[in-house]
Amino acid sequence: MMIKRIAGEAWVVLGVLVLTFLLLHLVPGDPVEVMLGESATQSDRQALREELGLNRPILEQFGLYITKLAHGNLGYSIHTKQPIADLLASRVPATFQLAALALAIAVAVGLPLGIAAALHAGKWPDTMASFGSLCLSAMPHFMLGPILMLIFALALGWLPVSGMDARGSIILPAVTLGFGLAAILTRMTRASLLEVLNEDYVRTARAKGLPESQVIMRHALRNALLPIVTVIGLQLGSLLAGTVVTETVFSWNGVGSLLVESIEKRDYPVTQACVLVIALVYVTVNTLTDMAYSALDPRVKFLG
Protein backbone atom coordinates (compact mmCIF):
# COMPACT_ATOMS: atom_id res chain seq x y z
CA MET A 1 0.00 0.00 0.00
CA MET A 2 2.83 2.29 0.92
CA ILE A 3 4.53 1.63 -2.45
CA LYS A 4 1.29 2.41 -4.26
CA ARG A 5 0.99 5.68 -2.34
CA ILE A 6 4.59 6.67 -3.09
CA ALA A 7 4.04 5.88 -6.78
CA GLY A 8 1.00 8.16 -6.72
CA GLU A 9 3.04 10.94 -5.15
CA ALA A 10 5.74 10.45 -7.80
CA TRP A 11 3.15 11.18 -10.49
CA VAL A 12 2.21 14.38 -8.66
CA VAL A 13 5.86 15.46 -8.60
CA LEU A 14 6.27 14.59 -12.27
CA GLY A 15 3.18 16.64 -13.08
CA VAL A 16 4.64 19.61 -11.22
CA LEU A 17 7.92 19.22 -13.12
CA VAL A 18 6.14 19.13 -16.49
CA LEU A 19 4.06 22.21 -15.65
CA THR A 20 7.05 24.15 -14.31
CA PHE A 21 9.16 23.27 -17.34
CA LEU A 22 6.45 24.27 -19.80
CA LEU A 23 5.53 27.49 -17.99
CA LEU A 24 9.15 28.60 -17.71
CA HIS A 25 9.70 28.07 -21.41
CA LEU A 26 6.44 29.81 -22.32
CA VAL A 27 6.97 33.04 -20.38
CA PRO A 28 8.79 35.80 -22.29
CA GLY A 29 12.49 36.36 -21.51
CA ASP A 30 15.47 34.43 -22.79
CA PRO A 31 18.33 33.39 -20.47
CA VAL A 32 20.78 33.81 -23.34
CA GLU A 33 19.71 37.45 -23.77
CA VAL A 34 20.03 38.00 -20.02
CA MET A 35 23.53 36.46 -20.01
CA LEU A 36 25.01 38.02 -23.12
CA GLY A 37 23.29 41.40 -23.15
CA GLU A 38 22.52 43.47 -26.20
CA SER A 39 26.03 43.84 -27.60
CA ALA A 40 26.45 40.14 -28.40
CA THR A 41 26.39 39.01 -32.01
CA GLN A 42 23.82 36.61 -33.40
CA SER A 43 26.49 33.92 -33.76
CA ASP A 44 27.51 34.33 -30.09
CA ARG A 45 23.87 33.98 -29.05
CA GLN A 46 23.42 30.92 -31.25
CA ALA A 47 26.61 29.33 -29.91
CA LEU A 48 25.54 29.80 -26.31
CA ARG A 49 22.03 28.60 -27.05
CA GLU A 50 23.55 25.42 -28.47
CA GLU A 51 25.88 25.03 -25.51
CA LEU A 52 22.97 25.31 -23.07
CA GLY A 53 20.79 23.03 -25.20
CA LEU A 54 18.17 25.76 -25.58
CA ASN A 55 18.08 25.41 -29.37
CA ARG A 56 16.64 21.89 -29.12
CA PRO A 57 12.89 21.12 -29.32
CA ILE A 58 11.19 21.65 -25.98
CA LEU A 59 10.26 17.96 -25.62
CA GLU A 60 13.88 16.94 -26.19
CA GLN A 61 15.00 19.49 -23.59
CA PHE A 62 12.49 18.09 -21.12
CA GLY A 63 13.59 14.52 -21.88
CA LEU A 64 17.22 15.44 -21.24
CA TYR A 65 16.26 17.22 -18.03
CA ILE A 66 14.30 14.23 -16.70
CA THR A 67 17.10 11.82 -17.68
CA LYS A 68 19.67 13.89 -15.82
CA LEU A 69 17.32 14.20 -12.87
CA ALA A 70 16.87 10.44 -12.75
CA HIS A 71 20.64 10.19 -12.39
CA GLY A 72 20.58 12.68 -9.52
CA ASN A 73 22.04 15.44 -11.65
CA LEU A 74 20.25 18.72 -11.03
CA GLY A 75 22.58 20.56 -13.41
CA TYR A 76 24.32 23.90 -13.09
CA SER A 77 23.09 27.42 -12.57
CA ILE A 78 23.18 29.28 -15.87
CA HIS A 79 24.38 32.45 -14.16
CA THR A 80 26.69 31.48 -11.33
CA LYS A 81 27.88 28.21 -12.95
CA GLN A 82 27.58 26.56 -9.54
CA PRO A 83 26.20 23.01 -9.23
CA ILE A 84 22.54 23.37 -8.27
CA ALA A 85 22.90 20.60 -5.70
CA ASP A 86 25.45 22.80 -3.89
CA LEU A 87 23.18 25.84 -4.13
CA LEU A 88 20.27 23.89 -2.66
CA ALA A 89 22.44 22.32 0.02
CA SER A 90 23.36 25.80 1.20
CA ARG A 91 19.77 27.06 1.12
CA VAL A 92 17.44 24.18 2.07
CA PRO A 93 18.50 23.93 5.75
CA ALA A 94 17.76 27.63 6.28
CA THR A 95 14.25 27.25 4.87
CA PHE A 96 13.55 24.10 6.88
CA GLN A 97 14.78 25.81 10.03
CA LEU A 98 12.51 28.78 9.35
CA ALA A 99 9.47 26.65 8.47
CA ALA A 100 9.98 24.41 11.53
CA LEU A 101 10.12 27.34 13.94
CA ALA A 102 7.16 28.98 12.20
CA LEU A 103 5.18 25.77 12.64
CA ALA A 104 6.19 25.55 16.29
CA ILE A 105 5.08 29.15 16.84
CA ALA A 106 1.81 28.50 15.01
CA VAL A 107 1.06 25.48 17.19
CA ALA A 108 2.22 27.21 20.38
CA VAL A 109 0.00 30.22 19.70
CA GLY A 110 -2.90 28.74 17.74
CA LEU A 111 -3.76 25.73 19.92
CA PRO A 112 -3.94 27.49 23.34
CA LEU A 113 -5.86 30.41 21.84
CA GLY A 114 -8.27 28.05 20.10
CA ILE A 115 -8.76 26.06 23.33
CA ALA A 116 -9.32 29.25 25.35
CA ALA A 117 -11.81 30.52 22.78
CA ALA A 118 -13.74 27.25 22.81
CA LEU A 119 -13.80 26.99 26.61
CA HIS A 120 -15.02 30.58 26.91
CA ALA A 121 -17.25 30.58 23.86
CA GLY A 122 -19.23 33.81 23.51
CA LYS A 123 -17.19 35.57 26.18
CA TRP A 124 -14.35 38.09 25.85
CA PRO A 125 -11.49 35.55 25.40
CA ASP A 126 -13.43 34.08 22.48
CA THR A 127 -14.13 37.48 20.98
CA MET A 128 -10.48 38.52 21.35
CA ALA A 129 -9.12 35.27 19.89
CA SER A 130 -11.56 35.35 16.97
CA PHE A 131 -10.82 39.02 16.22
CA GLY A 132 -7.06 38.48 16.50
CA SER A 133 -7.08 35.45 14.25
CA LEU A 134 -9.22 37.26 11.69
CA CYS A 135 -6.78 40.18 11.60
CA LEU A 136 -3.72 37.93 11.33
CA SER A 137 -5.15 35.72 8.60
CA ALA A 138 -6.10 38.84 6.62
CA MET A 139 -2.62 40.40 6.91
CA PRO A 140 -0.10 39.55 4.15
CA HIS A 141 3.46 38.64 5.10
CA PHE A 142 4.99 41.66 3.37
CA MET A 143 2.88 43.89 5.65
CA LEU A 144 3.14 41.97 8.90
CA GLY A 145 6.94 41.64 8.56
CA PRO A 146 7.76 45.38 8.53
CA ILE A 147 5.22 46.00 11.35
CA LEU A 148 6.99 43.44 13.54
CA MET A 149 10.35 44.96 12.59
CA LEU A 150 9.16 48.41 13.64
CA ILE A 151 7.95 47.15 17.02
CA PHE A 152 10.51 44.52 18.03
CA ALA A 153 13.63 45.76 16.25
CA LEU A 154 13.30 49.52 16.09
CA ALA A 155 11.05 50.51 19.00
CA LEU A 156 11.99 47.85 21.55
CA GLY A 157 15.41 46.92 20.16
CA TRP A 158 15.01 43.28 21.14
CA LEU A 159 15.60 41.63 17.79
CA PRO A 160 17.57 42.32 14.62
CA VAL A 161 15.64 43.82 11.70
CA SER A 162 16.72 41.14 9.22
CA GLY A 163 19.60 38.96 8.12
CA MET A 164 20.83 35.56 9.27
CA ASP A 165 23.95 36.17 11.28
CA ALA A 166 22.76 38.01 14.39
CA ARG A 167 21.38 36.14 17.39
CA GLY A 168 17.61 35.83 17.31
CA SER A 169 17.42 36.81 13.64
CA ILE A 170 15.17 33.84 12.90
CA ILE A 171 12.43 34.94 15.29
CA LEU A 172 10.80 37.75 13.35
CA PRO A 173 10.62 35.88 10.01
CA ALA A 174 9.37 32.78 11.83
CA VAL A 175 6.72 34.78 13.68
CA THR A 176 5.68 36.49 10.44
CA LEU A 177 5.37 33.15 8.73
CA GLY A 178 3.82 31.35 11.70
CA PHE A 179 1.15 33.88 12.66
CA GLY A 180 -0.90 33.27 9.51
CA LEU A 181 -1.04 29.56 10.29
CA ALA A 182 -1.65 30.31 13.98
CA ALA A 183 -4.76 32.27 13.01
CA ILE A 184 -6.11 29.34 11.01
CA LEU A 185 -5.26 26.89 13.81
CA THR A 186 -7.02 29.07 16.39
CA ARG A 187 -10.24 29.07 14.44
CA MET A 188 -9.98 25.38 13.56
CA THR A 189 -9.22 24.35 17.15
CA ARG A 190 -12.08 26.45 18.47
CA ALA A 191 -14.61 24.99 16.04
CA SER A 192 -13.39 21.41 16.42
CA LEU A 193 -13.23 21.57 20.22
CA LEU A 194 -16.66 23.16 20.53
CA GLU A 195 -18.10 20.28 18.53
CA VAL A 196 -16.35 17.65 20.67
CA LEU A 197 -17.25 19.34 23.98
CA ASN A 198 -20.93 18.57 23.31
CA GLU A 199 -20.27 14.84 22.80
CA ASP A 200 -21.60 12.25 25.24
CA TYR A 201 -18.16 10.88 26.17
CA VAL A 202 -17.09 14.34 27.40
CA ARG A 203 -20.25 14.61 29.49
CA THR A 204 -19.51 11.10 30.85
CA ALA A 205 -15.94 12.05 31.73
CA ARG A 206 -17.16 15.08 33.62
CA ALA A 207 -19.84 12.95 35.37
CA LYS A 208 -17.09 10.59 36.50
CA GLY A 209 -15.63 13.54 38.41
CA LEU A 210 -12.44 13.87 36.36
CA PRO A 211 -10.63 17.20 36.74
CA GLU A 212 -11.57 19.64 33.94
CA SER A 213 -7.99 19.76 32.66
CA GLN A 214 -8.02 15.98 32.15
CA VAL A 215 -11.39 16.13 30.46
CA ILE A 216 -10.12 18.73 28.01
CA MET A 217 -6.65 17.32 27.34
CA ARG A 218 -7.33 13.58 27.36
CA HIS A 219 -10.86 13.28 26.12
CA ALA A 220 -11.88 16.37 24.22
CA LEU A 221 -8.66 17.69 22.65
CA ARG A 222 -7.38 14.34 21.49
CA ASN A 223 -10.54 13.80 19.47
CA ALA A 224 -10.61 17.39 18.29
CA LEU A 225 -7.02 17.07 17.02
CA LEU A 226 -7.91 14.99 13.93
CA PRO A 227 -9.08 17.85 11.70
CA ILE A 228 -6.39 20.12 13.20
CA VAL A 229 -3.60 17.75 12.16
CA THR A 230 -5.05 17.66 8.64
CA VAL A 231 -5.07 21.44 8.51
CA ILE A 232 -1.47 21.62 9.77
CA GLY A 233 -0.38 19.16 7.08
CA LEU A 234 -2.19 20.99 4.33
CA GLN A 235 -1.01 24.39 5.53
CA LEU A 236 2.65 23.32 5.54
CA GLY A 237 2.52 23.74 1.79
CA SER A 238 1.36 27.34 2.17
CA LEU A 239 4.01 27.81 4.83
CA LEU A 240 6.69 26.87 2.29
CA ALA A 241 5.06 29.11 -0.31
CA GLY A 242 5.07 31.88 2.31
CA THR A 243 8.82 31.61 2.68
CA VAL A 244 9.16 33.10 -0.82
CA VAL A 245 7.90 36.47 0.43
CA THR A 246 9.15 36.23 4.02
CA GLU A 247 12.68 35.24 3.04
CA THR A 248 12.86 38.15 0.60
CA VAL A 249 11.62 40.69 3.15
CA PHE A 250 13.91 39.41 5.90
CA SER A 251 16.99 38.75 3.71
CA TRP A 252 16.82 35.10 4.75
CA ASN A 253 18.90 33.06 2.31
CA GLY A 254 16.66 30.06 1.83
CA VAL A 255 14.98 28.25 -1.05
CA GLY A 256 12.24 30.90 -1.29
CA SER A 257 14.64 33.76 -1.97
CA LEU A 258 16.67 31.54 -4.32
CA LEU A 259 13.47 30.82 -6.26
CA VAL A 260 12.69 34.55 -6.60
CA GLU A 261 16.26 35.35 -7.70
CA SER A 262 16.28 32.53 -10.26
CA ILE A 263 12.96 33.64 -11.77
CA GLU A 264 14.21 37.23 -12.07
CA LYS A 265 17.36 36.01 -13.84
CA ARG A 266 15.56 33.42 -15.98
CA ASP A 267 17.84 30.79 -14.46
CA TYR A 268 15.59 27.90 -15.55
CA PRO A 269 17.50 24.98 -13.99
CA VAL A 270 17.58 26.66 -10.56
CA THR A 271 13.88 27.55 -10.70
CA GLN A 272 13.01 23.96 -11.62
CA ALA A 273 15.14 22.60 -8.80
CA CYS A 274 13.54 24.93 -6.23
CA VAL A 275 10.04 23.98 -7.37
CA LEU A 276 11.06 20.30 -7.23
CA VAL A 277 12.20 20.67 -3.61
CA ILE A 278 8.98 22.42 -2.60
CA ALA A 279 6.85 19.81 -4.41
CA LEU A 280 8.76 16.95 -2.76
CA VAL A 281 8.32 18.47 0.69
CA TYR A 282 4.64 19.07 0.03
CA VAL A 283 3.83 15.48 -1.00
CA THR A 284 6.00 14.05 1.78
CA VAL A 285 4.24 16.13 4.41
CA ASN A 286 0.87 15.13 3.01
CA THR A 287 1.78 11.47 3.29
CA LEU A 288 3.09 11.95 6.83
CA THR A 289 -0.13 13.79 7.73
CA ASP A 290 -2.21 10.83 6.59
CA MET A 291 0.01 8.51 8.63
CA ALA A 292 -0.34 10.73 11.71
CA TYR A 293 -4.09 10.73 11.18
CA SER A 294 -4.24 6.96 11.52
CA ALA A 295 -1.96 7.09 14.56
CA LEU A 296 -4.27 9.55 16.30
CA ASP A 297 -7.42 7.63 15.45
CA PRO A 298 -6.98 3.84 15.21
CA ARG A 299 -10.32 3.62 13.40
CA VAL A 300 -8.68 5.35 10.42
CA LYS A 301 -6.38 3.07 8.43
CA PHE A 302 -3.53 4.28 6.26
CA LEU A 303 -4.52 2.70 2.97
CA GLY A 304 -2.16 4.62 0.74
Binding site: P146, L154, T248
Partner: peptide, 18 residues
Protein backbone atom coordinates in the same frame (compact mmCIF):
# COMPACT_ATOMS: atom_id res chain seq x y z
CA UNK B 1 28.31 43.71 1.97
CA UNK B 2 24.84 42.41 2.81
CA UNK B 3 22.02 41.87 0.37
CA UNK B 4 18.82 43.49 1.72
CA UNK B 5 16.29 43.65 -1.09
CA UNK B 6 13.44 45.48 0.58
CA UNK B 7 14.08 49.27 0.69
CA UNK B 8 12.10 49.70 3.93
CA UNK B 9 14.16 46.99 5.60
CA UNK B 10 17.41 48.60 4.38
CA UNK B 11 16.35 51.88 5.97
CA UNK B 12 15.31 50.21 9.23
CA UNK B 13 18.63 48.38 9.42
CA UNK B 14 20.54 51.61 8.91
CA UNK B 15 18.50 53.43 11.55
CA UNK B 16 18.98 50.62 14.05
CA UNK B 17 22.69 50.39 13.33
CA UNK B 18 22.66 46.90 11.78
Amino acid sequence: LQDVKDPTVRVLKLVRGE
